[in-house]
Simulated assay, not measured.
Amino acid sequence: MARKDMLLRCTSSDSGNSYYRWNVFSYVVAGTFATIAGIWSPEYPFLALTADPYFAVLGFLAGLNICIGTGALIVLYMMFGIETTRGEISTLAAFIGFGFGAGVICMTLPMVLELPIQWIN
Rank of each mutant, 00 (worst) to 15 (best):
2 A>Q: 01
2 A>L: 00
3 R>V: 09
6 M>S: 08
6 M>W: 09
7 L>E: 07
12 S>W: 01
12 S>P: 00
13 S>F: 14
13 S>T: 06
14 D>G: 10
14 D>F: 12
16 G>C: 05
16 G>M: 02
16 G>D: 02
17 N>K: 08
18 S>T: 11
18 S>R: 12
19 Y>P: 00
20 Y>V: 04
21 R>K: 14
23 N>R: 02
24 V>K: 10
24 V>W: 02
24 V>T: 12
26 S>L: 05
27 Y>W: 11
29 V>G: 06
31 G>K: 04
32 T>C: 09
33 F>I: 15
34 A>E: 00
37 A>R: 07
37 A>Q: 09
37 A>V: 01
39 I>V: 13
40 W>K: 04
41 S>L: 06
41 S>I: 01
42 P>R: 13
42 P>G: 12
43 E>A: 06
45 P>R: 11
45 P>D: 10
46 F>W: 13
48 A>K: 07
49 L>D: 05
51 A>N: 05
54 Y>N: 10
55 F>I: 06
55 F>M: 10
56 A>N: 03
56 A>V: 01
57 V>T: 12
57 V>L: 09
57 V>R: 03
57 V>G: 10
58 L>D: 05
61 L>E: 00
63 G>L: 02
65 N>M: 13
65 N>V: 05
66 I>T: 13
67 C>Q: 07
69 G>L: 03
71 G>V: 11
74 I>T: 04
76 L>Y: 14
80 F>L: 00
80 F>S: 04
82 I>R: 14
83 E>Y: 10
83 E>V: 01
84 T>N: 10
86 R>W: 13
87 G>C: 13
87 G>I: 04
87 G>M: 09
88 E>D: 03
89 I>P: 04
89 I>V: 13
90 S>P: 00
91 T>R: 02
91 T>W: 07
93 A>Q: 12
93 A>N: 14
94 A>M: 08
96 I>M: 13
96 I>C: 15
97 G>Q: 06
97 G>D: 09
98 F>M: 11
100 F>H: 04
103 G>A: 08
103 G>D: 09
103 G>W: 07
104 V>N: 01
104 V>I: 15
105 I>T: 10
106 C>W: 10
108 T>K: 01
108 T>S: 03
109 L>Y: 14
109 L>C: 06
110 P>G: 02
112 V>Q: 03
112 V>R: 01
113 L>Q: 12
114 E>Y: 08
115 L>K: 02
117 I>R: 09
118 Q>T: 06
119 W>M: 08
120 I>F: 09
